[in-house]
Design a protein around this nucleic acid. Sequence first.
DNA 1: TCGATGACTCAAA
DNA 2: ATTTGAGCCATCG
Length: 103
Amino acid sequence: MSDNHSFQQRIWQIVAAIPYGKITTYGDVARLAGSPRAARQVGGVLKRLPAGSQLPWHRVINRHGQISLTGDDLFRQRDALEAEGIEITDDGRVALDKYRWQP
DNA sequence: TCGATGACTCAAA
DNA sequence: ATTTGAGCCATCG
């Protein structure tokens, strides 16, 4: 049955389940989606989100606790995280152990 | 159908 | 700790 759902739809569902004020990593989302090696694709799906999507894409960061985006998008994600009370160090990192979402 | 592309991760040096 | 190279695999043109 889950095979009827596209990879993209599974990613959407998982990301949508990340609670407010929590974060997870691309690799973890990929694992939950059943493709442990598809972390890169998770980023690909989030990049192509339809305009106006309400998905909390900003709660997904890389395994170093850093934001993988660049330029203006980097600041937008950082601001969104801080707005949820997530602290970010001077070098732009999040305390993974502190905010990691574990289903 | 096929090659190129990446919002990644891991292991090795 | 930081850098490098290779692997991965869903999209896109």
